[in-house]
Simulated assay, not measured.
Amino acid sequence: MSLDWISKSIVANSMVLDGVGTTFIPGLIKFKYTINPGAAYGMNAGKLGLAITIAALVTLLLIAIFIFIRNKYWLIPISLMVAGSVANLLGRAWAPLTSDGIKGGVVDFIVFDFSFLGSDGYIFNLADAWVSIAVGFIIVILIAYAVFEILEANMRKKDKEKYEFYVDIKTRKQILFETYYEKFKFKDENKLTYRDYLSKNEKITKKWKKYKNKR
C-alpha cells in the first residue's frame, strides 16, 4: 500500500496532468498521469459518488473476508485485494483535482505500450495491478481445486485406505495452519513461530511420503 501511495505521489508531483506521457519500458509500459474519478480502469467515471460507495463496500467486504478466512491458499489473493482496495480508497482523500475540478478521484498513470485486446486503452495504478494479480491467483486456485477434487475422487474409488490417510494428513495440515495463523493474527506472545510451523508441517508431509512409499 505504501509503495502505491509513493508511486502516485511521485507521479502527481513530477508529471503534467493529462499530458502526453512518457515511455518507461519501450513496447511494454509507459506513464501517463491522469485522475480517474471512477472505479478501477475507469469504470463509473461519470458517477463519483457511486464509485466511492462501491469501493467502500467492497473494501469492507474484503477486510471481513480477510479477518475470517482460514485457508492459507486464499490469503495471498485476498491480502492483495485488501491492499489494493484500501490504497485506492484512502488515496482518493489526497489525490489532486481532475482537470474538470472534481475532487475524490484516483491517481492513475500506468499504460501498456502495446495493443492486445484493447490493453493500451486502460490507465491504472499499482493498487489496480495488485487486484488484477489477485484475480489471476484466484483463477489458478480454483483450477487447482478442481484438479485436486478429481484426483481425490479417483483416489477414493481406487484405494479407500489411502484416501482416508490422505484426508487425515490434509486435516492435520489445515489445523496446524489455523493454529499458527490465529495466534499470529491476534499477536499472541505464545504463538507458534513460523519456523515451528514449517517444522511441524514438514513432519506431517514426511508421514504422507513415508506412507506412499510403503504402498
Rank of each mutant, 00 (worst) to 15 (best):
Leu192Met: 12
Leu176Ser: 02
Glu178Lys: 08
Ile123Asn: 15
Leu89Gln: 10
Val82Asp: 01
Lys47Asp: 14
Tyr145Val: 10
Asn44Lys: 15
Thr193Trp: 03
Asp159Glu: 03
Tyr122Ile: 11
Val111Thr: 11
Glu152Pro: 03
Ala83Lys: 02
Glu164Ala: 00
Thr179Asp: 09
Ala93Glu: 07
Ala93Thr: 12
Lys187Asp: 11
Thr98His: 07
Leu89Tyr: 02
Val131Gln: 10
Leu75Gly: 02
Leu60Cys: 10
Met1Lys: 11
Asp196Gly: 09
Ile141Phe: 05
Asp4Leu: 14
Phe24Glu: 08
Lys209Met: 08
Leu48Ser: 01
Met81Lys: 00
Leu17His: 09
Lys170Cys: 01
Asp168Gly: 04
Ile133His: 06
Asn201Lys: 05
Ala12Cys: 11
Val111Ala: 09
Ile29Thr: 09
Val140Met: 12
Lys157Cys: 05
Glu149Val: 13
Lys158Ile: 04
Ser132Arg: 13
Leu192Pro: 03
Ser2Ala: 15
Gly105Val: 12
Ser79Gly: 13
Ile35Met: 09
Lys203Glu: 03
Ile78Gly: 00
Ile110Val: 15
Glu161His: 00
Gly136Leu: 03
Met155Leu: 15
Gln174Ser: 12
Ala129Gly: 15
Trp208Gly: 13
Asn36Cys: 08
Ile29His: 06
Ala40Gly: 15
Lys210Val: 09
Trp5Ile: 04
Gly121Ser: 08
Ala56Met: 10
Ser9Cys: 01
Lys191Gln: 10
Asn213Met: 08
Phe148Pro: 00
Ile54Lys: 12
Ile141Asn: 01
Asn190Lys: 14
Lys103Ile: 09
Ile54Trp: 08
Ile133Val: 04
Val16Pro: 10
Ala83Val: 15
Leu117Phe: 15
Asp196Arg: 00
Ser132Asp: 12
Ile175Lys: 10
Lys173Val: 00
Tyr197Pro: 07
Leu3Asn: 13
Gly104Thr: 02
Asp120Gln: 15
Lys173Met: 03
Ile10Gly: 04
Lys173His: 06
Phe137Met: 05
Phe68Tyr: 02
Phe116Pro: 13
Gly136Thr: 07
Ala56Gln: 00
Lys183Trp: 06
Thr34Cys: 13
Lys187Thr: 14
Gly84Asp: 00
Asp18Leu: 10
Lys30Phe: 00
Ala12Gly: 13
Lys158Asp: 00
Gly49Asp: 11
